[in-house]
Design a protein around this nucleic acid. Structure first.
Lengths: 324, 324
DNA sequence: CCTTGACTTTGAACCGGTTCAATTTTGCTG
DNA sequence: CAGCAAAATTGAACCGGTTCAAAGTCAAGG
């Protein structure tokens, strides 16, 4: 123990945590011993004796998706800024798995956790560990940071309407994804708000997945009938697929049909026809959520009033919806 | 404490860790108490008393890159299978940051860590914590799992040669990326092995970055001279960019020039012209590395002989290099 | 009924820090 | 140089488990 090298015991603790109240001379001596022995304080011991852990948990449905990786990166950054670390957990979108992970995090006595609930069902606020929900709306009894998918798609729809398009389509992913449902609803609402009947002017395609192949399939279904003049897609992959499906059949973007995606993945700007899309504030989402958690679990005297933040996405206009 | 509810103290520990040596009746009683109190054992206490932590660290240069996302997911899975958790750390490819993170991991007394060293420099095997290097070759005194970039590009080059292409080009990323350098070397070697002088038959383009824009720029430089009939790219993004640059100028793939990428990102199969590419065994890389670490830190009696594994990438042939 | 050995359970020491009341030192003041 | 308050240091209790020797329980055999 460093204490041998130096001369004391709790003084080492003071030197590390409250240097200002240790005499410079002593401080220096302890420091030397620390360096010499390569002493690294045992966090477990600290946590055990009541200091809160410098760790937060992050539970997401799919680690490998670009969306959550962006979030993870932001969370890692926010945590790092205050000397914390992040435990990354992949729930695979299964509630059982999610429960298990939350319990493990609780066992680690982490400072708290950020969770994107699997299946959109709220996990029992279990284990009394502070939680902040990510991309998931909650009541006032919890903290959350979410993105306004509804308004995002309204922006996209408004854009197409402003360009004069009136025969629209919405290509969405599987119904179980509530984000997709919200976006579809946003599109409908925007039409209605402009006195246009969505039932007539908006053809909705609900695909079984949300990848490029699904987009291609959607395009093929469109081509079977009268082509819309503006297409909203639930995400960029679908949009890329739709583009390919249309291009194969000779339909041109944006001349024949305007195309709008959602997410603004890295690629969107560099796609064959740069894609107009709705950019999610991914970084901000992760950063704010982490900050919220750290604030709340901080030693604020007044108790932690829960907050629900909702972030606004942003429409990025590119060539795929350029004025024909 | 659960002990109150039950009747004892170390017995609770036994019930949890060595149930078979606790009388069924007692076991049941303890279990009930546990359930009732929602008791979750404190991992810090366990670690402090000598049981090794159920946590491993993962330090990568960029959390948000598709490559490391895949790795992270595989690592998470491998860890999860044996009840471990993963601490995700982003070094931002800075050595200072990496050192700090490794020290923090050591402070957490994690079981060990997987590291992709920033800047390819080997971190001092610090803190005596077991490390396994990811995508980084080491001497026999360490564990590592890497991918054979050299052979990967040889496969790609061999493929183009087999198709009869003789005027080749290699588009690489910045010189500081040793992976790119290795790949370029692989291409040269394959030509040489076939009695072709790389200096004559292989035009090398070293771009400042490795994104789509860089690929476009590379294509433009090619177009200024005589077009090659086969192009190897250091990664898929570059290939996509090259494609766009060529397409704009009217050059067709694969009719006028065969194009090969590297990585097999999600997109490659669905690109306008499905891209021939070299697939990295990303999942295997992460999974094997994690397994290696867990094996080695396991309580094997014989001591931990270090192992270096090298994984082989795989050539995926698609239309971009179809027989013209 | 007493032994004996196998099986259970207990209790105390320990892990490595933090904390804080008590003690010792330091630095001034008179 | 004594007297004192402020500053620095110490030491023991504590956090919540694990471990293991010792004590206790039980059932079968003598």
């Amino acid at each position: 123990m460093a204490r041998l090298a130096g001369v004391s015991v709790g003084t080492v603790s003071n030197t590390i945590n409250r240097p200002q109240q240790v005499r410079p001379k002593t401080r220096r001596a302890v420091q030397e011993a620390i360096d010499e022995l390569g002493f690294v304080p045992n966090q477990s011991a600290r946590v055990l004796s009541g200091v809160s852990a410098q760790v937060i948990g992050l539970v997401v449905p799919d680690v490998a998706s670009p969306f959550f990786m962006g979030v993870a990166k932001a969370v890692e950054r926010a945590a790092g800024e205050v000397g914390h670390m992040v435990m990354l957990c992949n729930s695979g979108n299964e509630q059982a798995s999610e429960r298990r992970l939350l319990r493990m995090l609780a066992a680690q006595r982490v400072r708290g956790a950020l969770v994107t609930p699997a299946g959109a069902a709220q996990p029992e606020s279990a284990e009394d560990m502070p939680l902040v929900f990510l991309d998931h709306e909650t009541g006032a009894s919890d903290c959350s940071v979410s993105v306004d998918h509804f308004t995002g798609e309204r922006l996209a729809a408004r854009h197409l309407l402003a360009l004069g398009h009136r025969r629209l389509a919405f290509v969405g992913g599987p119904a179980r994804m509530w984000q997709m449902a919200l976006r579809a609803r946003g599109a409908r609402r925007e039409l209605a708000a402009n006195g246009i009947d969505p039932a007539e002017a908006l053809a909705e395609y609900t695909m079984p997945g949300f990848g490029i192949q699904d987009g291609i399939a959607a395009a093929e279904r469109m081509l079977a009938g009268e082509l819309p003049d503006g297409i909203l897609c639930g995400n960029d992959m679908l949009a890329f697929g739709v583009y390919r499906g249309l291009a194969r059949a000779g339909a041109r973007v944006p001349e024949d049909v305007a195309l709008v995606g959602y997410d603004d993945v890295d690629f969107a700007a560099d796609w064959i026809v740069p894609l107009t899309t709705v950019r999610q504030p991914i970084d901000e989402l992760g950063y704010r959520a982490a900050t919220l958690l750290l604030e709340h679990t901080g030693q604020l005297p007044g108790g932690h009033e829960h907050r629900q933040e909702r972030l606004l996405p942003e429409l990025i206009v590119r060539e795929s919806s350029a004025v024909g």
